[in-house]
């Protein structure tokens, strides 16, 4: 059992505070959806979790099974068990997916792993043409091919917790189903998922246990799968309007119920533990 614990997380990019007291807890086998309008901080959350340069943690903590992640470089977070499927996977000319994963797995174990066979097997499962595996990472790939490629890498690396940053964007419905269902199978084998998305359709194939609404850099509301349905019908208007009154909202995540009052804490001491 592995748990990613995000407590009172504040993140700034440059001078701008993007996240302001986010609390989330994702454990093995769970699927948590983080939904929100454009500009609410969804991608900042995923980049901050993975430790991208320029995303400054200004408050709170980020832990995997009690181990502080915030002081680790990106690669060490990955080795600790995190994976980020990127919204816009970066093109890396001249570097193949096979050598990348071989080098990543070589850090984990001295046992020689046949990465190429695993990649081909995973590519077949999600309908990714295996000749794309010989290409440089994400170079000359369509949006859909890039997302399938991310999914195949996720399956081969088999992390504890995967952050999916808008995996659905750029995917047609067949590819979406293939990728989501593959990840759903992995969750049955214990993968915990933090699924960041704007739309509901990904959750049709990768059902969420919990849905969190991220607005203005904080979780405005959390609930069961029905919350995503409600968003589909009514949009984000209700949350955006209530953004200014979101202090002290009750957040229930992964069976843990907690009372936060992030902005009040921020007034007193930006680094104070909201649970103290």
């Amino acid at each position: 059992m592995t748990t990613l614990t995000i407590k009172n997380l504040g993140v700034a990019v440059g001078d701008q505070q993007i996240l302001d007291g986010v609390n989330l807890e994702v454990s093995s086998g769970e699927v948590h959806a983080v939904m929100g309008p454009n500009g609410s901080g969804k991608s900042t959350l995923s980049n901050a979790i993975m430790g991208k340069a320029g995303y400054q943690i200004t408050s709170g903590s980020l832990e995997l099974d009690g181990q502080d992640l915030s002081s680790l470089p990106t690669w060490a977070r990955a080795q600790a068990g995190l994976f980020l499927a990127m919204q816009y996977p970066t093109e890396v000319p001249g570097v193949s997916v096979r050598e990348t994963l071989e080098l990543a797995l070589a850090e984990r174990s001295t046992h020689r792993i046949d990465v190429q066979s695993m990649l081909i097997e995973e590519a077949n499962k999600i309908g990714l043409a295996s000749d794309l595996l010989d290409r440089a990472l994400n170079v000359d790939m369509s949006g859909g091919e890039k997302k399938r490629n991310e999914t195949a890498q996720l399956a081969v690396l088999a992390p504890q917790i995967a952050v999916l940053d808008e995996l659905d964007s750029g995917l047609d419905i067949d590819a979406l189903r293939a990728c989501a269902e593959r990840i759903e199978v992995m969750t049955e084998e214990g993968l915990g998922v933090l699924c960041i998305t704007h739309y509901h359709r990904l959750l049709d194939y990768l059902p969420a246990d919990r849905v969190h609404i991220l607005v203005g850099g904080r979780i405005a509301e959390s609930g069961g799968p029905e919350l995503a349905r409600e968003l589909e019908a009514d949009g984000y208007a209700r949350f955006v309007e209530s953004d200014n009154d979101s202090e002290g909202v009750s957040v229930a995540i992964g069976g843990l119920s907690q009372q936060t009052s992030a902005s009040q804490t921020e007034l007193d001491d930006p680094f104070a533990d909201p649970l103290a």
């Binding site: 340069a53 690669w75 990127m86 996977p89 000319p93 990543a104 690396l157």
Partner: peptide, 21 residues
């Protein structure tokens, strides 16, 4: 960052980017 996010250590990721360049 992309290579590191897969678990490739920083120095190797940097070398891979140069090799790929």
């Amino acid at each position: 960052f992309y290579l590191e996010s897969r678990g490739v250590p920083s120095d190797i990721a940097e070398a891979l980017v140069v090799k790929g360049f």
